[in-house]
Structure formats: structure tokens, C-alpha cells
């Protein structure tokens, strides 16, 4: 038998041995990572309070640009457009995704299940620019020109998978014996859905609609390509502002939009975390 005790090179006893799987520097790396991730956001917010006309020349603290942005008619119009598009797209996408998810999670195994799943998640796989081009060509080919309507239809399409995923995850995490118990206790199919499945599914539906709302609010490239002159949404308007010149007004509008998204995602996070703990116990 061979003995293979490999003594450490130095007799430095003070050196603490890290537990297996731990590595030095991971924590520092992670801190650096989060700085990289959040620095731009912090910078953006910071400069939105710049009183100067130029973004990068600090001219003292001021909220003038917020006031200016709120009074800007074009921004107001863009905000309205964004809200209309996001609301309508979310309602439709969530409804469509919910019944789709019910079929795919509760319909057993059937021919075409994989294909259906692939189709619903297709908008996630295709690069946004390709979707944008395809939809633009399509509308022009059939001569459809409903202004904001075109934008809404495009948004419904790419929001479906975002609404679908949390709803399906929720359904698959749900104990089917609950539904069986309801059926066993003389509930009709409709009653089972109404009193058992739907209430349990609600957090998934809320989460799905929040995600699709955020995605729709934030979309830029598809709206830019598909939307016409009258259907400028907030991100598209911000883009045009950037092209015109960098003023802190962009930062101010962006900061508002940013907080809006963060608020919704935080709400989503709380809802989904809550529903997780609920299912566990």
C-alpha cells in the first residue's frame, strides 16, 4: 500500500482551510459584478437631477428636468400610447396564455404537445429584430394600417410566452390531487375549475400579466419598426430624444420608467415568492 500524505508546502497553520466547494475571491467577484450591473442605473438616476442643459456637465442639483418632462406634450402622448398598448396587450396575452397553459399542463400527453409548446415559446427564440421585420412586412403585405392597433397586435404576440411561463410553472407545481379531491367531493368540472384550480392559479396569472406588462412597456425595436408616426411609445420617444442630443430630460423620463418597471417586478417577485411558500406548506 502506498502512503500519499501530501503535506502543504508551507507550515502556515493560521491559514484557514475553506470548506469543499468554496473558493477565495468569489465574494469580491460578485460585488464587482453587481457594481457593473447597477452602476449605469445609478449614474442614470444621478444625472437626472443635473440642473445643467448637458447631461455630462454637472450644473448642480435640480428637479427642473422632471418638471419639464411632465409638461412635455409629446412625452405625455407617448406615455399614454405605452400604457394603452401594454394594458391591451397584457389582457389579451394573459387570457390566451392561460387557456393555452391549462391545456398543456392539464391536457395529458397528446400528439402535437411539443409542437404547441414550441409554437407558444417561439417569440422567445426568434431575435426581436427578425420578429419586427416579419411583422412589418406582413402588415404592409396585407395593407393593414391600424396605427396603434398594429403595435398592439405585435405586442400581444411576443407577450404570450412571457405570460405563459409563470402560469404553466404554477400549474405544474400544483398538486393535481386537489382537483381530484374536488371531483371526488361531487364538484362538476366547472365547479372544480371555479373553486379549486382558478384560485390556486391566480398568483401565476398575476405574475404572468405583470411580466407581459413590463415586457410590453419596455419594448423598443419592434415598436420602432412596426409603429407609424402616430403610435410613438415612450421607449421610441426616448430613442428619438437620444438621437437629438443628450439632455437630462432623457434621464428624468428614463428614471420614471425605470422605477415603474422595478415596482412591477418587485410586486411580481413578492407575489411569486408568497405563492411558493404557500405551495410548500
Amino acid at each position: 500500500m502506498t502512503v500519499h500524505i501530501n503535506k502543504p508546502a508551507t507550515g502556515n497553520k493560521a491559514k484557514r482551510i475553506l470548506p469543499v466547494g468554496h473558493y477565495r475571491g468569489l465574494g469580491a467577484w460578485t460585488v464587482f459584478f453587481f457594481i457593473f450591473l447597477y452602476l449605469p442605473i445609478v449614474v442614470l438616476i444621478f444625472y437626472s437631477f443635473n440642473a445643467n442643459r448637458m447631461v455630462m456637465n454637472w450644473g448642480g442639483f435640480g428637479i427642473d428636468w422632471y418638471i419639464k418632462a411632465f409638461q412635455n406634450d409629446d412625452i405625455q402622448k407617448a406615455v399614454w400610447n405605452s400604457l394603452i398598448v401594454a394594458t391591451v396587450a397584457t389582457v389579451f396575452a394573459t387570457a390566451i396564455a392561460t387557456i393555452g397553459a391549462l391545456v398543456l399542463a392539464r391536457g395529458g400527453n397528446f400528439r402535437g404537445k411539443t409542437v404547441s409548446l414550441g409554437l407558444i415559446t417561439l417569440p422567445l427564440m426568434v431575435p426581436e429584430i427578425v420578429t419586427a421585420v416579419a411583422v412589418l412586412i406582413f402588415f404592409s403585405a396585407i395593407g393593414m394600417n391600424w396605427g396603434l392597433g398594429n403595435v398592439i397586435i405585435a405586442h400581444i404576440t411576443f407577450c404570450i410566452p412571457f405570460a405563459f411561463m409563470p402560469i404553466r410553472a404554477r400549474l405544474e407545481g400544483m398538486d393535481t390531487s386537489l382537483e381530484q379531491a374536488a371531483r371526488d367531493l361531487y364538484a362538476s368540472e366547472w365547479e372544480t375549475f371555479r373553486f379549486v384550480t382558478a384560485p390556486l392559479l391566480m398568483p401565476g396569472i398575476v405574475a404572468g400579466s405583470m411580466l407581459s406588462f413590463v415586457i410590453s412597456m419596455d419594448d423598443f425595436i419592434i415598436t420602432l419598426m412596426v409603429g407609424g408616426a402616430g403610435s410613438t411609445t415612450l421607449p421610441v420617444y426616448i430613442y428619438s430624444m437620444i438621437r437629438r442630443g443628450l439632455t437630462p430630460e432623457i434621464n428624468a423620463v428614463s428614471t420614471v420608467l425605470l422605477f415603474f418597471s422595478v415596482a412591477i417586478v418587485t410586486a411580481y417577485w413578492i407575489v411569486s415568492n408568497k405563492s411558493q411558500t404557500k405551495t410548500v406548506h
Partner: peptide, 30 residues
Amino acid sequence: AAGRRWLGLAPSYFVIGIFMLVPMVIMGVF
């Protein structure tokens, strides 16, 4: 069961089919 399945999937098929799949085919043609 099959009928219900397809009824449930129909809206997804309709929207993504008409506004995503068909456009990509037209894009190919263009």
C-alpha cells in the same frame, strides 16, 4: 378531450401563427 384541447390552444395558434409564423414565411418570400 381532443376537441377541448384544440379549442384551448386555438387562440395561441391563431395569434402566433398569423402574426409570427405567417409573417416569417412572407418575409422569406420577400
